[in-house]
Simulated scan of single mutants.
Amino acid sequence: MSTLPGRRRGPSKGDRREQAILETARALLARKPLADITIDELAAGAEISRSSFYFYFDSKLAVVVALLHGITGELGRDAGPWLDGDGPDAESLRAALSALAVLWRDQGRLLTGAFAAAPGCPPLAQWRDGLRAAHVDRLAARIERDRAAGRAPAGPAPRVLAGLIDDLRTAAFAGTADPEALVDDLVTVELRMIYGDFGGSPLGRVIRQAP
């Protein structure tokens, strides 16, 4: 019987096996470093043979890259209100960083390994560069808006400052076993990097009083 027009087909057996490989990799990465994971483990977790594994991925690295692209949207999913807003909005920044911290808590081994390996691995470097550029572009635009409106003081070039903030976040989350515990400190540091110390001004009080 033919499929009715407009009806979506379910995932194929190949799609399910590919997803099973990715889920196996995700589960294994929660327990041990990427370097200790083998193709045999990935194949066994997906209930396929080692030779069948290569029908879906040509290497362990290809699995990791697919996992990373799968979570790329999550890395910036809740950042819109902060990046598209203006002024020292501590609550929007905290919401963005809190969502990011949860992702680092759940996917920290994958992300830490990817960032560490990126300098010597073109596919990972391309993923990392694209991720960083997307955040830096939007944050630099925000800094430019706030400086033009007199809400933020002059300082380093917006893209330079945005890049420093992005690198700080990555290093902070990659270097801790408890990403969520860093959120409040990162809120304070990032706001001060952008808005400086305004002394007794309303902007200064907003930054200092951020919980």
Rank of each mutant, 00 (worst) to 15 (best):
L124I: 03
T170Q: 10
P119I: 05
D40K: 14
R26S: 14
A172D: 09
G150K: 11
L139T: 03
P123H: 03
I37Q: 07
G70V: 07
A96S: 15
V187M: 11
G130C: 05
G14H: 12
E144C: 00
Y56T: 07
S59W: 02
A177C: 02
R142T: 09
M193E: 12
A46M: 05
A95P: 01
L191K: 08
P119H: 06
L93Q: 10
D166L: 10
E18W: 03
R169C: 12
G108P: 03
A118L: 10
R9S: 15
L191C: 03
F57D: 05
S2C: 06
A177S: 09
G200T: 15
S59P: 03
R208D: 14
S59D: 02
L4T: 12
A171S: 09
G87H: 01
A90R: 02
P158S: 03
L75A: 04
A149K: 05
A62C: 03
A140T: 11
D146H: 00
A79Y: 01
P33E: 08
A174S: 15
A114F: 11
T24L: 14
D58E: 11
V160C: 04
W104D: 08
G14F: 11
A181K: 15
V206L: 14
L61R: 06
R169M: 15
L182G: 03
D40T: 13
Q209L: 13
R192M: 13
S51Q: 14
S59H: 02
F57W: 05
R77P: 02
V136Q: 05
A125L: 14
S92H: 10
R105L: 07
V63F: 01
T24K: 14
D15A: 14
G163L: 09
I165M: 14
R208I: 01
D167Q: 12
G130V: 03
D197C: 00
S51W: 12
